[in-house]
Amino acid sequence: MPALHALANPTRFLSIARPLTPVLLWAGLLLLAVGAWAGLTLTPPDYLQGESVRILYVHVPSAWLGMGGWTGIALASFSLLVWRHPLAAIAARAVALPGAVFAALCLITGSIWGRPTWGTWWEWDGRLTSMLLLFFLYLAWIGLARADAERGGDGRIPAIFGLAGTALLPVIRYSVVWWRTLHQGPSITVSGSSIDGSILWPLWLTLTGFSLVFGAIVLMRMRAMLAQQRLEARMRRMAA
């Protein structure tokens, strides 16, 4: 992991994160604007669900980042436990909040889509229930990590929780395959997509756009936490 270890030094990390933050943010917002415009005006409606298919362009990226956020927590937790990476605890805490927000957005946009298409806002099927569980895991993790940081913990306890929560990710992904659910099966798999190209293409724009914005938010939150740490260290030295 030489690349990760080069970032272990907060000063070196900041020298990369500072210029990268606005680049990710503006590139992401630009892609989102183009993707949303294309998804709202250029693409055809679906043969069965009609216009409501357009919600896909915000729902799928939310689901992807809701799950991707937990993957981020798990990777950071792993490198904290194994390599004691000095930025890992901060990275995990920076990812958690946007991850939770995207998990919530996935549930909300899915519910809004469900009403006109399925005829219900919410059903306790395997996919919806497991995604709701992930959202609750985020809330619990954020609370735990905050308590740990306030007590001056080294982040190991939230890291163990972060790794354990990973078990939910394959359950969410395969819930629609293992069980009969109201939610449709996976459209995009390694073998290809069952979404017609004319409907699919803006999804790549919004997916990339949301991911870049997610990255910018994580960098901003990490920078804030690093500055806060510096501030507190300085205060302690001045008080001593």
């Binding site: 009609g50 919600i55 939310s62």
Partner: peptide, 16 residues
């Protein structure tokens, strides 16, 4: 469907 679509996009935009 349009009120639903706009609501979904609105919620996401506001949260972002």
């Amino acid at each position: 469907h349009w009120p639903f679509i706009l609501a979904a996009y609105g919620v996401v935009a506001a949260a972002m």
